[in-house]
């Protein structure tokens, strides 16, 4: 179940270019904070249409931010249309100059649904990639420390203690502080993944060390060593399989945490910047009180995090239950 939800969400993010009706950066300066467009079946004269349609929104004269529907002409929603500005086929859309904003528009009149889907590419995959990085680092260093022991172990674990003595968000901020502030969105994305992934190696490293330490002393490992197996063979063949359970449960725990880290940093203007959407910089619009209280659809990226996190938590619980009651 959890896997299904996560799979669907990530597929939607990958297919954002097709699923979203507009490009995430396409602005409509005449439609700031347009409310979600209503899909209709019955028009103003009471006729029933089989194909859903929308009415064009027009800003009311003299009252900025208040919109009326122009009921003189229905604009049918069509499937598989070619976008005017993107020059690619979208799942659905309406003809120009009408707009279909299923989740409303932001302050620049950009379609919130398109931004949500494209932002998911940034936010969700930043979490996945950062988790891959930190688990990779943690696994490597934890295995080294656990397998070789002695001074390697002592040095690595003292280092880990240093990193753990800092509250992790403070550490993240400190590392982010020393990196350049104004970078292009693409660089910012890579920078964030690197920073989030590399800063948090200590916690997984400690856990992997524990598993490797106990695996190393198993009788079959000692036997293999007695037969002259090389270190590399021992780690690959006997130690690594023991760590897979921990790897999976840790991944399910860390990914949502890193997604939130990206969202937080972008929210505060330290992450991916405009015009590229990320769920964090979309939420940043809420820092203005009138947006916070007047336009509920600006909350959607934050609310979208909840089902994603619930699915990851359910996944981690399921993995833990499968691994047995003894695992951490």
């Amino acid at each position: 179940m959890a896997l299904l939800v996560l799979g669907a969400v990530h597929l939607a993010a990958i297919g954002a270019g097709f699923l979203a009706p507009y490009a995430p950066t396409e602005q409509n300066r005449s439609l700031p904070y347009a409310p979600p467009t209503r899909l209709r079946f019955v028009d103003a004269e009471g006729r029933l249409h089989l194909r859903p349609f929308v009415y064009r929104l027009v800003e009311r004269e003299g009252a900025g931010g208040v919109y009326d529907e122009d009921t003189s002409r229905p604009w049918p929603v069509r499937l598989f249309v070619r976008g005017a500005s993107t020059d690619r086929v979208h799942l659905f859309g309406v003809e120009e100059p009408a707009r279909v904003f299923l989740l409303g528009a932001d302050g620049f009149g950009r379609d919130q649904l398109s931004r949500l889907l494209h932002g998911a590419q940034i936010s969700l995959f930043a979490g996945l990639m950062a988790a891959t990085l930190s688990l990779g680092m943690g696994w490597l260093l934890g295995t080294l420390a656990g397998f070789y022991g002695r001074w390697i172990d002592a040095a690595l674990m003292r280092g880990a203690e240093l990193f753990l003595a800092l509250p992790w968000l403070y550490l993240l901020f400190a590392v982010r502080a020393v990196l350049p502030l104004s970078v292009s969105p693409g660089q910012a994305f890579l920078l964030l993944v690197l920073v989030i992934g590399l800063v948090d190696w200590a916690r997984p490293a400690r856990l992997f060390r524990g598993v490797v330490l106990s695996a190393r002393e198993r009788n079959y490992v000692l036997a293999a060593r007695g037969f002259g197996a090389s270190d590399l063979y021992l780690i690959r063949r006997h130690i690594a399989p023991q760590t897979i359970g921990l790897l999976l449960t840790q991944a399910a725990l860390l990914v949502p945490q890193y997604i939130l880290a990206e969202v937080t940093l972008s929210f505060l203007g330290l992450g991916v910047g405009e015009p590229v959407p990320s769920w964090g910089n979309m939420l940043a619009a809420l820092q203005r009180y009138h947006v916070l209280s007047s336009y509920w659809w600006m909350w959607i990226p934050g609310l979208a995090l909840v089902p994603v996190f619930l699915a990851y938590f359910a996944l981690s619980e399921a993995l833990r239950a499968r691994a047995g009651p003894a695992s951490p």
Binding site: L292, S293, L310
Partner: peptide, 22 residues
Amino acid sequence: TALLLALPDLVLALGLLLLAVR
């Protein structure tokens, strides 16, 4: 508790702020 666990602290803080503003 599961729902609260999944609710990001950022969204929680913004929600309470909305309460204060409203």
